[in-house]
């Protein structure tokens, strides 16, 4: 069931356990019941008393009201988070590739190159999870479903073509503003996952998405300003 993904830090690093109590178990059962109504493949979680600790890097921790699935099972949020991330990677990769050929600022090029190679590995992991669970890579096409979680990426072929045609003096600013939009979205997706996802490895992945994007954004803002 567990995808072959890197999990150097288990969920124990992310979340502290707390002894479960009976009311909490009832809540978890209710949550799982509702989740199963939503059509996802959530399975009962053996442990019901977990809560997020304030150990998320440099950010107020998400307030969780649902336990961690220590058996590695996933819920609808885990799936939606990964699908929304999957929708970002291809357009982001095209933007990042343009930076390599069009930017004249070495700092921009270097940051873009590092983001490009790390996101390529992330995408492989995301694909491995979703295909392992028998889920489509594409998110639900209803945009309203995602609007409250940052929206789906707005960078289509038209925007990528426009960036490729940008005047050299405008390229870096256009590129950085497009990528900033992407990375802010990823932070919002990760926050959604950290609030209501249950799969331990995906939660750990969301923590990394949150912290890397939150580190990239200040660098990009300094370059765009």
């Amino acid at each position: 069931m567990s995808p072959a993904g890197p999990a150097p830090n288990g969920p124990g690093h992310l979340l502290q356990r707390r002894n479960g109590t009976s009311p909490v178990k009832k809540i978890a059962a209710l949550a799982l019941l509702l989740l199963s109504v939503s059509g996802c493949a959530a399975q009962p979680t053996p442990d019901t008393g977990t809560q997020a600790a304030a150990s998320l890097p440099a950010r107020p921790s998400a307030s969780r009201s649902i336990g961690i699935a220590e058996d590695g099972s996933h819920n609808a949020t885990d799936v939606m988070f990964l699908q929304m991330m999957a929708a970002q990677y291809a357009p982001a990769d095209k933007l990042l590739e343009l930076a390599a050929s069009h930017s004249t600022n070495e700092q921009v090029k270097q940051l873009a190159a590092a983001i490009k190679v790390t996101q390529a590995d992330e995408y492989k992991q995301v694909q491995a999870w979703l295909t392992g669970w028998g889920k489509p890579l594409a998110p639900d096409s209803n945009p309203a479903l995602h609007a409250e979680h940052g929206g789906l990426p707005a960078t289509g072929q038209k925007e990528i073509d426009a960036l490729a045609q940008a005047a050299p003096a405008d390229f870096d600013r256009e590129f950085l503003n497009l990528l900033l939009g992407h990375q802010h979205q990823a932070v919002e997706y990760a926050r959604m996952e950290l609030t209501s996802g249950v799969q331990p490895q995906v939660l750990e992945f969301a923590t990394r998405i949150d912290s890397t994007r939150s580190g990239e954004i200040p660098m990009m803002l300094k370059l765009v300003g």
């Binding site: 809540i27 649902i66 949020t77 479903l145 609007a147 409250e148 929206g151 802010h184 609030t195 209501s196």
Partner: peptide, 23 residues
């Protein structure tokens, strides 16, 4: 908990446009 789950079930109205001036 119900709210979180409900947000997965219900098509919430699109409201979250977001943006700011970067330069």
């Amino acid at each position: 908990t119900v709210a979180v789950v409900a947000s997965l079930l219900v098509n919430v109205p699109a409201a979250s446009a977001h943006g700011y001036i970067s330069s």
